[in-house]
Amino acid sequence: MKTWLITGCSSGLGLQLAEAVAARGDRLVATARSTDSLTSLCERYPETVRGISLDVTRAGDAAKAVALAESAFGGLDVLVNNAGFGFIGAIEEGEPDEYRPMFEVNLFGLIETTRTALPSLRKRAGARIVNLSSGAGIAGSAGFGFYNASKFAVEGLSEALAQELRPLGVHVIIVEPGPFRTAFLGRSMITAAREIAAYAQTAPARRHYRQSNNGRQAGDPAKAVAVMLQAVDSEHPPLHLPIGPRAHAIAEQKLDSFRADITTWRDISIATDFDTDNCGGPK
């Protein structure tokens, strides 16, 4: 039986994962900015689920949630950094008061929640940290640049964290979902207020995608959660976990494009060391 702490349990994959964790009998500290959304879950599993308010941008909230896991269940085995939201708009269109709050949640909130939980996680052999990235964390796309940037940062941070924690027996899993039928394109997505005509051939496609696909995504959230649980339970969990055919297609296209650039420019771009004389030093 594992003890989990999951951020962003009010809706989407966070809620689906919280439900699945509780249903299988694990212990859970479920968090959301408002505990009203957690009432039903806590009432159905009074022995194994605790709910607490956690705004990842608010100092002290993460410490209270970790303390609850320790006092109620004796420790923490799995941290899932799920809280986050998206932003649509060309880079020039975005204003700081629109995109900076997204970085505060998607990146800095994740960092501080992780830093707070690490002392507890390091006490548990085989502990896991699950960081929710996205297919947008694998490859950038026009109109999604700010969101891409926040998720690319999560990817780099997670890769470094995995190296730091591997000798301690703690594993990091970066979950990279494609489109799943949640409220992400609705309540969890904001759009730049300004539209600049110069970007009419690129950025608006992302706005249209939101309007035409909200509530119609092909991915089944329950199946995504089942994959996540299997990865957490695995003796050798993956560092990168794209979920869904679209996420895999994004990853494969990125690898192909990256390899093509490396191969084409290899001979020119690696010839950059100092020329040396016979003594091995620079001329």
Rank of each mutant, 00 (worst) to 15 (best):
His208Asp: 14
Thr57Arg: 14
Leu107Cys: 09
Glu235Ala: 12
Arg27Thr: 11
Ala231Arg: 12
Ala200Val: 13
Ala193Arg: 15
Asn131Glu: 01
Gly8Arg: 07
Gly156Met: 09
Leu28His: 02
Val105Glu: 08
Thr57Gln: 14
Arg216Glu: 04
Ala153Glu: 03
Ser120Tyr: 02
Ile262Met: 12
Pro101Trp: 01
Ile52His: 01
Ser120Asp: 02
Gly178Asp: 11
Gly8Met: 03
Leu68Met: 15
Arg181Pro: 01
Ala22Gly: 02
Phe146Met: 14
Gly156Ile: 03
Cys279Met: 10
Asp267Met: 10
Gln230Thr: 13
Thr113Leu: 05
Leu54Val: 15
Ala260Leu: 07
Gly12Asp: 12
Asn131Val: 14
Leu107Trp: 04
Gly75Trp: 05
Ile6Asn: 01
Leu5Ile: 05
Val29Phe: 07
Leu241Met: 14
Ile250Met: 09
Ala83Cys: 02
Ala153Gln: 06
Val49Lys: 11
Lys223Cys: 03
Val21Glu: 02
Ala90His: 12
Ala32Arg: 06
Leu110Tyr: 03
Thr31Cys: 09
Val170Gln: 04
Ser188Tyr: 00
Gly135Ala: 13
Gly219Met: 01
Cys42Glu: 11
Glu155Ala: 10
Leu157Gln: 04
Asn81Trp: 04
Ala183Tyr: 00
Thr3Leu: 07
Pro237Lys: 09
Leu185Asp: 03
Thr263Met: 10
Pro282Lys: 11
Gly280Cys: 06
Ala226Asp: 06
Ala224Arg: 01
Glu252Asp: 14
Lys254Glu: 02
Asn214Arg: 07
Thr3Ile: 10
Asp267Phe: 05
